[in-house]
């Protein structure tokens, strides 16, 4: 195995994982954020708090639950048995499930805030112009919330790239399947391959810097706080 493929493989896999996770999260989070942003009730606060749990929980808690849930004794194992597998752990699908849960608050929150900041007025105005709620949502609410979506996509992607504990616990370190960048760095450090570790780590640091810079530039350009 060459050093280059040892580095490049995890990079590509990480981008695939983060990209797919972000796409799924944008689809799931939009209706959820819309619902959460409208007229607050106790119920919504409870759901919102549950969705925000990964912000506070150590990744090991999530990793442990996922390992049990994805395994043969949990629902994940039941799903996996549909195609003859015993578990969803150690699979790319398992990582996507884990990442979606883990990164969800980072996507829901900015969209929710953007919807909430918009207030009721634009939707009411659209209604008086006889736009259907569905049409008003797409032509009024979504464009108004665009900075929130952008922030959500960037944060969701970046946070998935930065995931480590969960992947370490449910991944099984399989090259090309579950060996993402953060795990590859851990591996390189453990096996005294520090040149490779340095390369990847520096790349991650640069990536994080670019993400944070992009975030503040978006906030500035859009003229309102993004989160």
């Amino acid at each position: 195995m060459s050093a280059l493929s040892d580095i490049w493989g995890p990079v590509v896999l990480t981008i695939e994982l983060a990209g797919l996770t972000t796409a799924i999260l944008l689809v799931i989070s939009t209706p959820v954020a819309w619902w959460l942003a409208r007229a607050p009730s106790l119920w919504k606060e409870i759901v919102g708090a549950v969705l925000a749990l990964p912000l506070v929980l150590p990744p090991t808690v999530l990793g442990f639950y996922l390992l049990v849930m994805l395994g043969p004794d949990g629902p994940g194992g039941a799903i996996a048995s549909l195609w003859g597998a015993r578990t969803l752990a150690f699979s790319f699908t398992g990582l996507v499930i884990g990442s979606v849960i883990y990164s969800m608050p980072f996507v829901v929150q900015p969209i929710r805030n953007a919807f909430a900041a918009m207030g009721e007025r634009p939707m009411e105005a659209a209604a008086t112009l006889r736009a259907s709620p569905w049409r008003a949502f797409w032509t009024v609410a979504v464009p108004l919330a665009r900075p929130g979506f952008l922030t959500a996509a960037i944060l969701g992607f970046a946070h998935t790239v930065g995931e480590f504990g969960v992947v370490l616990m449910i991944g099984g370190n399989i090259p090309g399947v579950t060996k993402v960048m953060s795990v590859a760095i851990f591996d390189f450090v453990e096996t005294s391959r520090w040149r490779e570790a340095h390369l990847l780590a520096a790349g991650m640091a640069l990536f994080a810097f670019v993400v944070i810079l992009a975030m503040s530039l978006i906030e500035k350009r859009m003229g309102r706080p993004a989160s």
């Binding site: 390992l67 049990v68 395994g71 004794d73 015993r86 150690f90 370490l168 099984g172 399989i174």
Partner: peptide
């Protein structure tokens, strides 16, 4: 079919939870 644990302790836990045969 091989999955790797970060340590021998994690390796055992993979089999103990039934995730590995």
């Amino acid at each position: 079919k091989i999955v790797q644990g970060a340590s021998i302790a994690q390796t055992f836990q993979f089999a103990e939870t039934g995730n590995a045969d």
